[in-house]
């Protein structure tokens, strides 16, 4: 288990979402197991984890769609998300639309359910559709929209009421690269407005680009919680090299923790302790007469972090 965030716990008023020892069981199956979380205001927070890790259940509990079996949830200072529904936006993982409704009416309807005045909701719906390139489809029935357009409409329906806090469950799944970019733009726009955003994903590239902080969940448990930098720091940096010589002498270099043979002939990873210098390794190579055909500093990606934690969890 990596060390928890060493900073002092933020005070209640700084938190958009707080989960304290939350557990959810369905009959004998435990979907979320003693999970604690704190999402500060104004950040983009990623819920990462493999399929079935408990991300959606956690989100549903945060939104009061499910009652936790145990533990306590607090969202925007309220015990129930419905008490602060006007300030929350939500895009579920499985996206559905009322087929017979016009795009603008659908967005306005969901705005209405979040407390907007119907007329204002309709005006804002049209404005948003125009802003994100669907100006020509305001009066089109949802059944006539393409899949990508439909998803865009649903994203807009979840933010039409200008919420302070937006939760997006797997927002990128099923989107083509162009629409993924549009959605990233929506998220960046929201962040620029100071909106707190939580989104779940198992695509690490999105998380890496967008998130300030992440929580890694596996089998319902929290595996890591912190910033991206902290996440990367949690696994050792390494040097990747290709050589015909034996790199074993490098073990003696200060800061080298391991020498690992990789797949492919002559490929090696030289694992470094925190603070170790790569040029020291390079000098050692020259000193020991190790002939290099390539030498590369390897910074861990979020993907490495994911694989490490999820792999450890799976092995456990």
């Amino acid at each position: 288990m990596p060390p928890l965030d060493p900073r002092p716990a933020p005070s209640m008023s700084d938190l958009a979402l707080r989960l304290e020892h939350v557990t959810k069981r369905f009959d004998t199956f435990t979907a979320v197991d003693d999970l604690s979380l704190a999402v500060p205001f104004g950040c983009v927070y990623g819920f990462l984890g493999p399929n079935g890790a408990g991300k959606t259940t956690t989100i549903r509990m945060s939104l009061s769609i499910y009652e936790p079996t145990m533990g306590r949830v607090e969202i925007l200072g309220a015990r129930s998300a419905l008490d602060v529904r006007a300030q929350i936006g939500y895009l579920p993982e499985e996206k559905g639309l009322y087929k017979k409704m016009k795009a603008k009416d659908l967005i306005a309807f969901f705005g209405g359910l979040r407390g907007m005045d119907p007329g204002e909701a309709r005006r804002e719906a049209v404005r948003l559709l125009e802003r994100y390139g669907l100006g020509g489809f305001t009066d089109t029935r949802c059944e006539a929209l393409s899949k990508g357009m439909g998803q865009k409409v649903q994203v807009l329906a979840s933010v039409v009421h200008k919420p302070r806090f937006v939760i997006l469950d797997e927002p990128f799944s099923g989107l083509d690269p162009v629409n993924q970019q549009v959605l990233e733009q929506v998220i960046l726009d929201l962040r620029a407005q100071g909106t707190t955003i939580v989104f779940s994903t198992h695509i690490m590239e999105h998380a890496e680009r967008l998130c300030d902080r992440i929580v890694l969940i596996g089998r319902g448990k929290r595996l890591f919680d912190g910033t991206i930098v902290e996440a990367k720091r949690s696994i050792p940096r390494s040097v990747r090299l290709h050589t015909a010589s034996d790199p074993e002498p490098l073990r003696a270099v200060r800061g080298v923790t391991d020498v690992v043979r990789l797949e492919g002939d002559g490929h090696w990873a030289i694992m470094l302790a925190e603070g170790a210098q790569t040029d020291e390794v390079l000098r050692a190579c020259f000193r020991s007469g190790i002939e290099l055909s390539s030498f590369e500093r390897h910074d861990p990606s979020l993907r490495d972090v994911f694989l490490k934690f999820v792999g450890e969890e799976a092995a456990a």
Partner: peptide
């Protein structure tokens, strides 16, 4: 059944009881 099959219920239930 339509609302259930198209998963609209989930969004609805995040807004209303």
């Amino acid at each position: 059944v339509e609302e259930k099959a198209s998963r609209i219920f989930e969004v609805l239930l995040s807004s209303v009881t």
